[in-house]
């Protein structure tokens, strides 16, 4: 192995140790409260079940729609599972950590969604929708970006309804 790679790995390990001991000094911090932990458990369950159903149906769908391609199909399955988890967590007020600011999360979702969508569409226009008879991998990027933007929509809707509720309370 290259000397510099070993040095970089050792440095990364040292940084990791420093961070670990620094966090221990800070004391235990609960990122989510008990209700949120419970709700996230339900969200993980739904996300996992969605993924399991997708895997179960994968073969049938690939037989019926071979132009999707196994790579894009796999990414779409993962995307669906993660989206179900995220949307469930948002709807149950278990997505944001206790002291996390919604603006930062919304900005990251918007950036990720729009950035991915832009890159995906650009690549699809350049390389085409189909490559060797199956969907271009960028189609998966477009689908994932659309999911992220859908998640953002759900997040913003929840955030504004919560604010109205907050004012009434």
């Amino acid at each position: 192995m290259n000397f510099w790679i070993v040095l970089a790995l050792l440095f990364a390990a040292w940084l990791g140790l420093v961070y670990h001991f620094w966090r221990r000094e800070q004391g235990p911090k609960q990122p989510y409260d008990e209700r949120q932990e419970q709700a996230r458990g339900v969200a993980y369950k739904y996300g996992f079940l969605t993924l399991a159903v997708c895997v179960f149906l994968f073969d049938t769908v690939m037989t019926l729609f071979p132009w999707i391609g196994t790579e894009v199909g796999g990414y779409l399955c993962l995307d669906l599972g993660v989206t179900v988890f995220t949307v469930t967590a948002i709807r149950r007020d278990a997505y944001l950590r206790l002291y996390e600011r919604p603006g930062k999360v919304a900005a990251l979702l918007a950036l990720g969604g729009l950035g991915g969508l832009g890159c995906g569409v650009f690549d699809l226009r350049k390389a085409g929708l189909l490559v060797d008879g199956t969907l271009n991998v960028s189609a998966a990027l477009v689908a994932v970006s659309v999911s992220v933007l859908l998640t953002l929509t759900v997040f913003l809707h929840k955030h504004f309804s919560d604010r109205r509720e907050d004012e009434e309370a």
């Binding site: 008990e34 209700r35 206790l98 919560d162 509720e165 309370a169």
Partner: peptide, 10 residues
Amino acid sequence: VGVSRQTINA
């Protein structure tokens, strides 16, 4: 009490 507002509401 160290929880979210939504938990108190719930």
